[in-house]
Design a protein around this nucleic acid. Structure first.
Lengths: 140, 140
DNA sequence: GCTTAACGTCGAGCGCGCTCGAAGTCGTAG
DNA sequence: CTACGACTTCGAGCGCGCTCGACGTTAAGC
């Protein structure tokens, strides 16, 4: 599988994949005839895990450390585990914070009242909505 | 309250506060004797809300749009509400994704097994931990 | 009056995570 | 044989959200 098809499959650009290989996130991949990258499905789980680390906000330098430990093989399990545990704890705290922010957002939105039905809604059943009360002016 | 004290109180740098004012996130604040910014507590709720928008990942350009609508006053409630609703929906989706990633992380960490008790733990009660099973080698 | 620290404006710079373009190589379709 | 498009390496550039430094002014304490 060439890098273009692979990129499309995993939802990254070919540029990004080469960049990841360059900085050591991805191991040097096998080449066909010595030049062009040729991927197979065995690379997918690792990349999927990497993208999860990214989406959860792990800095790339930490991902690189993890990748180095992984490449080093046995003897690095404790470090890898610690890194993941610390990351998980940060992510958990972040989720808690986001949820708190969400309730603030909900309150703010409720303070603006229901939207005017100027455009017909796709969902025409409004029976579940709370009655319209004109919003009281607030700071913000 | 001068900008230094204010900055310390809200947890932003004076540089950042001036930057926020420059780009229109904060209204031009009253000056003492025409020059130096003089804040009072009435600015706090708005800044707190702004920092929540930031922490939840709203781009600054959207925050500026919101701030402009807020400054424009009445007649912009629908726009403000829509912006917040769209943002809230993105944040909700993000939280869902983070939670999914967290369970992957948990599984990965579990795959490394319990950490070796080389350092004495602060929590010496280990009765709640699952029994030690040597980790099975896995990719990653 | 003098020192000093906090303030002011302005614009440049930084760290991050890509993103892109240039310029060349290769393999296959027509 | 030719054209094309996907690949290669390399290094520069970008968008974001600050962050900082230079340099001048000003108010407060001694």
């Amino acid at each position: 599988m060439k890098i273009g098809a692979f990129a499309e499959r995993i939802g990254l650009s070919a540029h990004t994949i080469r960049y990841y290989e360059r900085i050591g996130l991805l191991p040097r991949c096998p080449r066909d005839g010595g030049q062009r990258r040729d991927y197979d499905a065995s690379a997918l789980p690792w990349i999927a895990f990497l993208t999860r680390l990214r989406r959860t906000g792990m800095p790339i330098r930490d991902m690189v450390r993890y990748a180095e430990w992984r490449a080093a093989g046995q003897g690095t399990e404790a470090e890898r585990r610690d890194l993941l545990v610390r990351h998980r704890d940060r992510v958990r705290a972040h989720v808690v914070d986001l949820q708190a922010c969400l309730s603030v957002l909900d309150a703010k939105i409720a303070g603006y009242g229901d939207p005017p039905p100027s455009e017909p809604q796709h969902d025409t059943d409004t029976s579940h909505r709370r009655p319209v009360r004109p919003g009281i002016a607030r700071p913000g």
